[in-house]
């Protein structure tokens, strides 16, 4: 038997929503519609990053899985960007954690301001963000990623009434695996590898995965045949 609504313990849930600044559903308290409203609000809350309000890691991974399935069927390219704020530790150490939080919020806003409504912006780590861009042509990947990087670079971010900082981001990107057998994990890993490359090359840079991955280097070829075992065969 389904429990009646008054039997449910909703105090904590309602308190959580109040604390997050979410208004209680307008429907009569205790009605099914009201309960649905409470659930929807909780779902929304658990999908968002508390500090910035953008998607959190959990909903980001869900969105990636959906996107992979869509790409395998449609073949439409989709781009994943992962971004990391450069020298963020320095911001925290110099200006304090409250300033660091303001910077994170401002970067999230800058990202939201320069992507399309259909794109998903997520905070996936402390100072790490991701943007999922469905239906983004491969020829435009570099332009889009560069626009995001420049937007952050050129946005002064206030950390007090008197002080604004300019921060930069390093950006790594990879297009969606176009095959049926793939995983969000693999996609993130590929974009992450490009992010490390951007960091290593000096930061405030965009690195996208090169289109042609299947290269066999001369070194690999040498190792493939460099074997005395083959000398046995004429």
């Amino acid at each position: 038997m389904r429990p009646s609504i008054p039997d449910l313990h909703l105090d904590d849930a309602l308190q959580l929503l109040r604390q997050a600044g979410v208004p209680e559903p307008a429907e009569p308290a205790g009605s099914m519609a009201w309960l649905q409203g409470v659930i929807d609000a909780l779902v929304d809350l658990t999908s968002r990053d508390a500090l910035t309000g953008v998607a959190n890691r959990r909903s980001f991974e869900l969105a990636l899985a959906r996107e992979i399935d869509r790409v395998a069927r449609s073949g439409e390219p989709a781009l994943l960007l992962v971004l990391d704020i450069d020298h963020f530790k320095h911001v925290n150490d110099t200006h304090g954690h409250a300033a660091g939080d303001l910077i994170i919020k401002a970067v999230a806003q800058a990202l939201l301001d320069c992507v399309r409504p259909m794109d998903l912006v997520a905070r996936i780590g402390g100072e790490e963000f991701a943007v999922v861009l469905p239906n983004c042509a491969t020829a435009f990947g570099e332009t889009v990623a560069e626009r995001v990087r420049r937007r952050v670079e050129h946005t002064p971010m206030a950390i007090s009434a008197a002080t604004a900082l300019n921060v930069t981001v390093s950006v790594g990107g990879a297009f969606a695996p176009q095959w049926v057998r793939s995983s969000p994990h693999l996609w993130i890993e590929r974009a992450d590898r490009q992010l490390y490359r951007a960091k290593a090359q000096g930061r405030n840079l965009v690195c996208l995965e090169p289109a042609a991955v299947p290269v066999v280097s001369g070194e690999e070829k040498r190792m493939l045949f460099d074997s005395s075992q083959f000398l046995d065969f004429e």
Binding site: P177, W179, S182, L186, V213, P214, L224
Partner: peptide, 16 residues
């Protein structure tokens, strides 16, 4: 062998 290796490499990287 080179082409087999290239195939294997791509499958590992893009199809897990």
């Amino acid at each position: 062998m080179t082409d087999a290796y290239a195939t294997i490499k791509v499958l590992a990287a893009t199809q897990a």
